[in-house]
């Protein structure tokens, strides 16, 4: 090791930045080099001098003053608008994309290749399948419904319940229209009915499906909170068609007392539904829970502010009965 390198390493060693193996090498050099020993002593003297100009904690007054000034300046700034924040996030995402152009290009190439091969295989298989089906077209009896994959369901085209039977036929579309038939208890049919209850395009479909689901709930058949009950609450809250909302409300009736979420959905209907008929029905369903604090609050609000005098009257009557019940 020459002295020039040793001088550099003396500095690094003093600041703990020299790797261990080089520290040992440096020590060996120093034992035999008086000039470098002087260099090290001078550095120690510098450290001693530097200690006479110590870093001090900032005075409390300074911190308080700086904080106050910053608070004032921040208060004076206009709040960031949503599009500024959105712009920032987009820029961040763009930067991330720019950081990985090669990966993106490779992914695109790999995806294109796999898609082309897969598509070719699929087309060949399908052509063979269609040709075979054309030859052996039969009118076989309806088979047990296969559980439809919900992500493949484009929309529900019709729901028909067979007279005097528990059987329901649900027609739904994938790439080509499909048909499935099964009992109302069948999970596949129920899933399709739940999809149909949120079908934005057809009020008729929503009406049919919500009607059937509500009837199931009223009959107390597997109206589980996370499934059909949720679908009915969504219909009650958001469906544009009053008939659909009314059916959903009726389906939820048996659960008002036991399920707080159902109760809240009915209270929301009473407060916000624009159809007086729905509000009237909702208030009629609250009788079993009229002593509940939230229900009383909503009833008080409705008693003073509902547009319909009849609903206001019923609210007042219900409220007047509450102390007796308590």
């Amino acid at each position: 090791m020459n002295c020039e390198l040793a001088h550099e390493r003396i500095v690094l060693a003093a600041y703990g930045e020299l790797p261990d193996e080089q520290v040992h090498e440096l020590e060996r050099h120093l034992t035999g080099c008086p000039e470098c020993q002087v260099e090290r002593e001078q550095l120690s003297a510098l450290a001693a001098a530097a200690a006479c100009h110590p870093v001090l904690e900032p005075p409390a007054n300074l911190t308080a003053r700086a904080r106050l000034r910053l608070d004032e300046a921040l208060d004076a700034l206009p709040p960031k608008r949503w599009y500024e924040r959105l712009g920032g996030r987009l820029m961040n995402n763009m930067a991330r994309l720019q950081a990985a152009p090669v990966a993106v290009a490779l992914l695109l190439l790999a995806g294109t290749g796999a898609g082309a091969i897969g598509g070719y295989e699929f087309a060949m298989n399908r052509a063979a399948h269609v040709a075979a089906q054309a030859q052996v077209e039969t009118l076989a009896a309806p088979q047990a419904p296969a559980t439809p994959k919900l992500d493949e369901v484009a929309n529900i085209s019709s729901i028909v319940r067979q007279p005097n039977s528990n059987m329901v036929e649900v027609r739904y579309n994938r790439v080509v229209p499909q048909r499935v038939e099964g009992s109302l208890e069948d999970p596949a049919i129920r899933q399709l009915l739940m999809v149909a209850s949120g079908d934005a395009n057809s009020a008729g479909i929503r009406d049919d499906s919500v009607g059937l689901l509500a009837a199931e709930c009223r009959a107390g058949r597997s109206c589980n909170p996370a499934g059909i009950r949720d679908a009915l609450m969504t219909a009650l809250r958001y469906d544009r068609n009053a008939n659909v909302r009314e059916k959903a409300l009726r389906g939820l009736e048996p659960y008002i007392a036991e399920d707080m979420r159902v109760r809240n959905a009915v209270l929301e209907a009473l407060l916000y539904d624009n159809d007086a008929r729905i509000r009237g029905e909702a208030i009629g369903l609250l009788e079993p829970v009229e002593a509940d604090t939230t229900v009383r609050q909503v009833l008080s609000a409705v008693a003073t502010s509902d547009q319909s005098p009849q609903i206001r009257n019923v609210s007042r009557q219900l409220l007047s009965r509450v102390p007796e019940i308590q």
């Binding site: 001090l56 904690e57 900032p58 300074l62 911190t63 700086a66 910053l70």
Partner: peptide, 13 residues
Amino acid sequence: VRQYEQQVLRLAL
């Protein structure tokens, strides 16, 4: 700000 203000002031001062 509270987390870093002392270090910032110490350095700047």
